[in-house]
Nucleic acid binder design. Structure first.
Length: 583
RNA sequence: GGGCCUGUAGCUCAAUUGGUCAGAGCAGGGCGCUCAUAACGCCUUGGUUGGGGGUUCAAGUCCCUCCGGGCCUACCA
C-alpha cells in the first residue's frame, strides 16, 4: 500500500437503556463500520472502538423497572447490544463498557488532572430531592403544572406544550415523574463543574481551523459538526461551564486521581464526562483482553507514545456533537497531557420512519433485533448506508426499502453473479474457461472501472457515504452492461473461445465485486468470494491486473441466490407490524 | 423567542469558489436480448430548482421577505 496509515475510529457509544433502532444505527455505528472495513481493506492499521454507555439515571430506572440490580441489568443489556452489533457485522476491535474498571480509573485520572490545572470548580447548588424515591431528581424527572400555560405535565427543564424553559421550582404542584410522589424538597448539594468557558478561545480556534480544508488534504468537517459547535461556543453568554457530577449511586465515584475528593463522597461523575473517556478506556480494555500490555493501547492514544501519526475519526448523530466538539476536547486539552485529539468528526442527521420519527419510547419504527429477525444484515446495511442522512434528515419507508433492495442487490448485483456463473456452468462447467483473448470491449470496461474504482476510493476516504454507495452500484451496473454487449450466449455458438474470454473476465468481475462491496455488504461479499473458491481480498490496483486474479482452469461454484426479493405481501405485512407499538 | 439545517422531475437524491448545472437512480413509456432472481441492455416522457422581490453580464448557487419541514437551545443521554 502506498501510504499505510494508522486510523483510530470510534462510534458514539449507544446508551445501555434498551435496544437501538435503525436511526441510531445509521447515525454512528454503521458508517463507522463502513469506514473501518474500507480502511482495513486498503491495508491501513485500524483500531475500531465502541462500547455501551452505562451510567446515568435512565439506566437506574430501567434496571428498577426490570426488577434487577443495575449492574446486572447493564451486564445483560451489554451482551444483548454486543450480539446485535455482531449480527449487523459491526467489526469492532473491541466493544467495551463504560462501567469498566479501566474507565473508572481514567475518568478519575482526568478529573484529577483537570483539578490540578484549575479547570474544576466546586459549586454549591440546590436541587430537588424526592424522599419517596430516595434520590435527587434530574430536572426532567420532575413534573408539574406549567406556570406559563397551565399544561399539567410540564417537565422541570421545559414545558413541552409551550416550550418555555423552566426551573423545577417554577412548577406548580411538582411531583416526581418516577413515582408520582409530591414529597419533594430542595436540598443543597455540591457539584463539580468543568470550566470549559476558560477554554472557549482555544476551542473556538480549533473548531474554526476545521471549517476549511486543512493542510495535508484533510477535508473540512461537515457543516453540521462545526455549526453546532460554534453555536454552543458563541450563543448567548458563550460556552457555559458544565456540571460533571451527579448525586447517584451508579457511576464512576468522584475521585481526584486516586485520592478521595473531600466533600464529594457518595457522588459520581456525570455520564457525559465519563462516556467519551470510555473510547480510551475501551482501547485499554482491548489490550487487557488480549494480554497486550499498556503500550498496545497507548500507541493509539498518547502522542508521546506513538500516537502522533494516528488519524482519529469519530462518528456520531448530531445530538452528540456538542459533547465531542467541546466537552471532550476540553477534557483532553485541559488535562495538560499528550492525549490524542480527534482529527475528523463525521456527524449525521436523523433517519425518520415513515412520516414521523423513530421512537424508542413509543416503539415506533424498526429496532435492531426486529430488523435481523426479518432479513439478513446486508439488506439493512445497504439501504441504510446508501440512504445515510448526510445532508439532511432522511426517511425510511417500506416502499423505498423494498424497491431499493430488490433493484440494487437482487437485480443488479445478485442477478449478475447468478447469470454469469450459471451460464458458465452450462457451457464450460464449473471451471474458469480458457482460450480467447480480450479486445476493445474489455479494454473499455477496464477503463471505466479504473475511473469508477478511483472515484469510489475518493468517496470512501472522504466518508461521503451515499456517493460511495452510488459509485459502487455503478460498478455493479457496468458488469451487466458489459455482459449484455458482449453477449457470450450468442458468441458461444460460433466462437467458443471468444465466449470463454468473456466469461473468464466476468467471473473475475465477481471476485472484484466481492472485494469492493465488502465494506457495505460483508456477508454477500464473502459468499461471492467463496463461490469463486478464492481468498484473495487484496484491494485492486490497476484494474486490468485485478481482473486476471482467477486464471483459466480455476474451479468455482454457482452460489445460492445472493439476495432474494422482498415481496409485496411481506412489505405490507411489515408496514403494518412496525407502525404501532413494540410488543 | 433565538440559532442551525432543509425545501430541485411522481419518489430518493446530485449539482467545485455564482458562469452549458438543470442532472442521476428508481418509478412511467418504447425497443432489444434470452445467460439470469419475469432478471439485463438501449432509448425516452417528466422540473419556470417552495412563492415573491433584489444584487449581477450571469443565481438552485448571494441578499431580503413569505410559506413549509426538521433539529438544537446546555439536568435524557
Amino acid at each position: 500500500m502506498a501510504c499505510m496509515a494508522r486510523i483510530l475510529i470510534t462510534s458514539a457509544i449507544p446508551y445501555i437503556n434498551g435496544i437501538k433502532h435503525l436511526g441510531n444505527l445509521v447515525g454512528s455505528q454503521l458508517p463507522a463500520d463502513l469506514y473501518a472495513r474500507y480502511s482495513r481493506a486498503r491495508g491501513h492499521e485500524v483500531m475500531f472502538i465502541c462500547a455501551t454507555d452505562e451510567h446515568g439515571t435512565p439506566a437506574e430506572l430501567a434496571a428498577a423497572k426490570a426488577g434487577m440490580p443495575v449492574a446486572d441489568y447493564c451486564a445483560q443489556m451489554h451482551e444483548v447490544q454486543k450480539n446485535l452489533g455482531a449480527g449487523f457485522r459491526l467489526s469492532f476491535d473491541h466493544f467495551g463498557r463504560s462501567s469498566s474498571q479501566r474507565n473508572r480509573e481514567l475518568t478519575q485520572h482526568f478529573a484529577g488532572q483537570l483539578a490540578e490545572a484549575g479547570l474544576i470548580a466546586e459549586v454549591e447548588e440546590r436541587q430537588v430531592y424526592s424522599n419517596a424515591d430516595g434520590r435527587f431528581l434530574p430536572d426532567r424527572y420532575i413534573e408539574g403544572t406549567c406556570p406559563n400555560c397551565g399544561y399539567d405535565r410540564a417537565r422541570g427543564d421545559q414545558c413541552e406544550n409551550c416550550t418555555k424553559q423552566l426551573d423545577p421550582t417554577d412548577l406548580i404542584n411538582p411531583r416526581s415523574a418516577i413515582s408520582g410522589s409530591t414529597d419533594l424538597e430542595v436540598r443543597a448539594t455540591k457539584h463539580l463543574y468543568l470550566r470549559q468557558s476558560a477554554m472557549r478561545d482555544q476551542l473556538r480556534e480549533w473548531i474554526l481551523s476545521k471549517t476549511q480544508m486543512g493542510g495535508n488534504g484533510q477535508p473540512a468537517w461537515p457543516v453540521l459538526t462545526t455549526s453546532i459547535a460554534l453555536k454552543w461556543l458563541d450563543d448567548g453568554d458563550g460556552l457555559q461551564d458544565r456540571g460533571i457530577t451527579r448525586d447517584l449511586d451508579w457511576g464512576v465515584p468522584v475521585k481526584k486521581g486516586t485520592e478521595d475528593w473531600p466533600g464529594m463522597e457518595g457522588k459520581v461523575f456525570y455520564v457525559w464526562f465519563d462516556a467519551p473517556i470510555e473510547y480510551i478506556a475501551a482501547t485499554a480494555e482491548w489490550a487487557d483482553a488480549g494480554g497486550r500490555g499498556e503500550g498496545a493501547w497507548e500507541r493509539w492514544w498518547r502522542t508521546d507514545k506513538g500516537a502522533e501519526d494516528v488519524r482519529y475519526v469519530q462518528f456520531m448523530g448530531k445530538d452528540n456533537v456538542p459533547f465531542h466538539t467541546l466537552s471532550f476536547p476540553a477534557t483532553i486539552l485541559g488535562s495538560g497531557e499528550p492525549w490524542k485529539l480527534v482529527d475528523y468528526i463525521k456527524s449525521f442527521n436523523y433517519l425518520n420512519y415513515d412520516g414521523g420519527q423513530f421512537s424508542t419510547s413509543q416503539g415506533r419504527g424498526v429496532f435492531m433485533d426486529q430488523a435481523l429477525s426479518i432479513l439478513p444484515s446486508d439488506y439493512w446495511r445497504w439501504w441504510l448506508l446508501s440512504h445515510a442522512p448526510e445532508s439532511g434528515d432522511s426517511e425510511f419507508t417500506w416502499e423505498n426499502f423494498q424497491a431499493s433492495v430488490n433493484k440494487d442487490l437482487a437485480d443488479v448485483l445478485g442477478n449478475f453473479v447468478s447469470r454469469i456463473t450459471k451460464f458458465c456452468r452450462s457451457k464450460f462447467g464449473e471451471t474458469v474457461p480458457e482460450g480467447g483473448a480480450s479486445g476493445a470491449r474489455e479494454a473499455a470496461l477496464a477503463a471505466e472501472l479504473e475511473t469508477r474504482v478511483r472515484a469510489y476510493e475518493g468517496f470512501m476516504e472522504a466518508m461521503e457515504v451515499r456517493k460511495a454507495a452510488g459509485e459502487l452500484r455503478a460498478i455493479w451496473v457496468a458488469g451487466n452492461e458489459y455482459l449484455q454487449a458482449a453477449a457470450p450466449w450468442s458468441v458461444v455458438k460460433e466462437d467458443p473461445e471468444a465466449a470463454a474470454a468473456i466469461v473468464r473476465l466476468s467471473l473475475n468481475l465477481v471476485r472484484l465485486y466481492a472485494v469492493l462491496s465488502q465494506p457495505f455488504i460483508p456477508d454477500a461479499a464473502a459468499a461471492m468470494m467463496t463461490a469463486m473458491d478464492c481468498d484473495d481480498w487484496s484491494w485492486p490496483g490497476e484494474i486490468g491486473a485485478a481482473l486476471q486474479a482467477l486464471p483459466a482452469g480455476h474451479g468455482f461454484s454457482v452460489p445460492e441466490v445472493l439476495f432474494r426479493k422482498i415481496t409485496d405481501e411481506e412489505r405490507a405485512d411489515w408496514q403494518q407490524k412496525f407502525a404501532g407499538v413494540r410488543n
